[in-house]
Design a protein around this nucleic acid. Structure first.
Lengths: 126, 126
DNA sequence: ACATTACATTCCCATATAGGAATATGTCAA
DNA sequence: TTGACATATTCCTATATGGGAATGTAATGT
């Protein structure tokens, strides 16, 4: 099997850096395609294709106004990403505490020998 | 050009659903590969390959213990995702307020005609 | 030394891009 | 109608998968 489609979910859609830029650009206000092209310096067909992906997963909304189409970010669709990543918050807070405690312990004991920095470890880390 | 490599950054790495599952499973404690295989019901080579991707972008750490290799999630590496998605928080809060205000206004006015739900809109939405 | 356990890597392949170029579609203006 | 403007879509192609199967490799037990 190949990689999942970019339109399969928000995670796949935002994997592309340009699509993330577009989402940020369209977060505050709706803009016509031409404005995105000008602001991000991309080719117009490229922007249209990215917008198509973003629409398919609900990350942007579109409205027609005369001959232009106004896009804006649907921030609600980004919440699942935020919440998924947020599940790990308690763990990175723990890691920060451990680093802090280690630093304080090191100050009390004096610095470790930098030539053998792993002398106190039983297993090698990666 | 093709899609960016899954190892190009954390965004691309977590686009794969199985890799997200692995990260959650390895968030609380380090586990040998066999435990992941058993817990998630994937083929062992598949798990090894996913772990390789996750390691390349720093989303997991590995430690050798005898013949097994213990992996754990490096939650710190998920923070950038959380923070990127967090940039949109103020916008989805605004959207929620607008929906709430609209609902309250609707209650005051009575419900709109469901057969012509767009009768008050000048442009068509998508 | 040999078999076993625990992982990692390689090979093969169907599939899905993302970008560039060219073209199609839809809207407004004269 | 004709032309200009704003977007969208199609075609083409190099590239990167992810899964399955098979194989490689390192560590341990006997």
């Amino acid at each position: 099997m190949a990689r999942a489609s970019t339109t399969s979910d928000a995670f796949n859609a935002v994997a592309e850096p340009r699509r993330r830029e577009i989402l940020i650009y369209l977060a505050g206000a709706e803009r016509p395609v031409g404005a995105i092209v000008a602001a991000l310096g991309l080719e117009q067909p490229s922007v249209s294709k990215h917008l198509r992906v973003l629409r398919d997963v609900g990350l942007v909304r579109m409205r027609c106004q005369g001959r232009q189409k106004l896009y804006r970010t649907n921030s609600e669709a980004i919440r699942p990403l935020h919440e998924w990543a947020g599940m790990f918050e308690r763990y990175w807070l723990h890691q920060l505490n451990r680093v802090k405690e280690l630093a304080e312990a090191t100050v009390r004991q004096g610095p470790a020998d930098l030539n053998f920095p792993n002398q106190n470890l039983k297993e090698k880390n990666t």
